Structure formats: structure tokens, C-alpha cells
Amino acid sequence: MTPKLVAGIEPPYYTAVFTSIRPDAPEGYAETASRMRRSVEEIPGYLGHESARTPGGIGITVAYFRDLESLDAWRLHTAHQEAKAYGREHWYDSYSVHIGRVERSYGHERA
């Protein structure tokens, strides 16, 4: 599968940047992550996300939302709150979340 970046979103929009440190492949993580991907895609105003993880356990996920209301809908989503609580207890050594408003966006794709 060729990776694809989220592109072509007209600003302004919002990002939730989740950075974390966790062991590689903890039990139950992949299933929960897949379930969360399906759930967030149902949130009106969700625009997409990109993720990367190093072999050493540092991960970054950037999720894009049209407005703060859609981002808050995801933050308050019951299954998401349950997954976050479980992750704090069982998976993540540490994490941080950064919320930002995007004023300008551009990119490049080789033809």
C-alpha cells in the first residue's frame, strides 16, 4: 500500500496532534486503533489523519477537523474516552495533545 497524505483542505481548519511513547504492538492496541479509526470517520467535520511511529516507540498522529465542534465531538465520544482511559493505564508511557488552528496549508506531489 502506498502511503497517502491528507491534502487539499481549505483553511481554516483544526488539528489535534497526538504524540506518544508506547511499546511496539501492545496487546489489544491494533484492534482498538482500528475501531477508533472507524468511529472518528463517522464524526461530521472529520477530515482525515496521518500517523507515524518509530521503531523505538515514539508516535505522532495528526487528525484534521473542520471546526472545534467536530473536534470536541471526537474528544467527548464515549468509545474514544474509554480507549484513552485504557491507553493511559495499559499502553502509553507518556503522551501529549496539541490543538491548533491551521491558517495556511500547501503541499507538493511529484507527478
Rank of each mutant, 00 (worst) to 15 (best):
37 R>P: 00
67 D>F: 08
13 Y>S: 01
39 S>T: 14
53 R>S: 09
15 T>L: 11
42 E>Q: 15
64 Y>Q: 01
44 P>Y: 00
31 E>W: 05
12 P>L: 13
52 A>D: 08
24 D>M: 14
46 Y>N: 02
51 S>W: 09
49 H>V: 02
32 T>N: 08
20 S>W: 01
8 G>Q: 03
54 T>M: 09
25 A>V: 08
46 Y>V: 01
20 S>F: 07
60 I>H: 07
42 E>D: 04
41 E>R: 06
35 R>Y: 11
67 D>P: 10
16 A>K: 09
43 I>N: 00
23 P>E: 14
8 G>P: 06
62 V>H: 01
8 G>Y: 03
46 Y>I: 04
66 R>I: 05
42 E>R: 14
36 M>V: 11
19 T>A: 11
42 E>A: 10
57 G>H: 07
17 V>G: 03
35 R>Q: 15
36 M>I: 15
33 A>F: 04
22 R>I: 08
25 A>G: 04
22 R>M: 11
20 S>T: 10
38 R>H: 14
52 A>M: 12
62 V>P: 00
35 R>H: 13
60 I>E: 07
21 I>N: 15
49 H>M: 02
65 F>C: 03
54 T>Y: 11
11 P>A: 04
65 F>S: 04
44 P>H: 02
55 P>G: 06
49 H>C: 04
16 A>Y: 13
40 V>C: 00
27 E>A: 10
23 P>Q: 14
23 P>L: 11
45 G>W: 00
11 P>L: 10
28 G>R: 11
21 I>Q: 15
16 A>D: 06
19 T>S: 11
18 F>M: 08
28 G>M: 10
31 E>A: 13
65 F>V: 07
63 A>M: 12
27 E>R: 05
44 P>E: 06
18 F>K: 03
56 G>Q: 15
8 G>M: 07
33 A>G: 09
41 E>F: 01
32 T>V: 14
30 A>I: 05
62 V>I: 14
50 E>L: 00
10 E>N: 14
66 R>E: 13
61 T>R: 01
43 I>V: 09
60 I>N: 03
26 P>D: 05
28 G>W: 01
14 Y>E: 11
52 A>W: 12
37 R>D: 12
55 P>D: 14
30 A>R: 10
20 S>Q: 03
25 A>E: 12
52 A>G: 08
39 S>H: 13
26 P>M: 03
15 T>K: 03
13 Y>I: 02
24 D>C: 06
61 T>H: 02
58 I>T: 13
22 R>F: 12
